[in-house]
Nucleic acid binder design. Structure first.
Lengths: 104, 104
DNA sequence: GATGTGTATGCCTTGACAGGCATATACTGA
DNA sequence: TCAGTATATGCCTGTCAAGGCATACACATC
């Protein structure tokens, strides 16, 4: 996973953009209006999202149509994997170990 | 999910602390030594992690033993859920829709 | 080419925050 | 009570990034 996947997702505006792009592809202005954010702000955040692989865009006349991509989310899913041992129902070594020291 | 789960995870030192705590409970000094980070830095980051629910601690004489917790990771897992539609094998409405507009 | 529309970029200000260092606080044992 | 150990906190500084505004750039239509 790219080192800064979390930084990218830590920005609320970017998460709102991703939420929206999950519903449908959108142009910059569509996003700006839907989210009530200035167009430059949207463009800047889309640039961040693009460079981190969260979105790609195609050109349609003067408009740029942005689309969400799976890969960074998959990477996040992968990153999460080892931590799932914390709540997966089957008792593995880690869980047994920690439960022996239970304090909370 | 707490609004700032991603902000918490966006800090590399904090992720390293969580990595380590996933292996075993640790005191502050143990973490500081293992990660080669100053003790105040560790304490500060642990405070952030504590307030976000990633860790709890118990007192053992003068030492504070920190332990990782599942809940915020589960919240992250939940947040991820809608985005799994992007790569899940079965073709749902979203995927069909986006694929009709395929460009990449 | 001139004008309009859509988007990107540059500059600026402001705020958040990470870490260094010093110090306060908490607990222990002599 | 004193010294030692473990941890937390306060102050300071530097860095970085978000968004406002103006403007540059790209494309279309006439």
């Amino acid at each position: 996973m790219s080192v800064d996947t979390f930084s990218v997702l830590s920005e609320p505006t970017r998460r709102r953009i991703l939420d929206r792009l999950l519903e449908a592809e959108s142009s910059v202005n569509e996003l700006a209006k839907a989210l009530d954010v200035s167009q430059p702000t949207v463009s800047k955040q889309l640039k961040v999202l693009r460079e981190a692989g969260f979105v790609t865009c195609r050109t349609e006349a003067q408009r740029r149509i942005y689309r969400i991509h799976a890969r960074p989310f998959q990477a996040l899913d992968d990153w999460l994997q080892p931590y799932r041992a914390l709540w997966d129902r089957h008792l593995d070594a880690l869980e047994r170990h920690l439960d022996n020291l239970e304090e909370s």
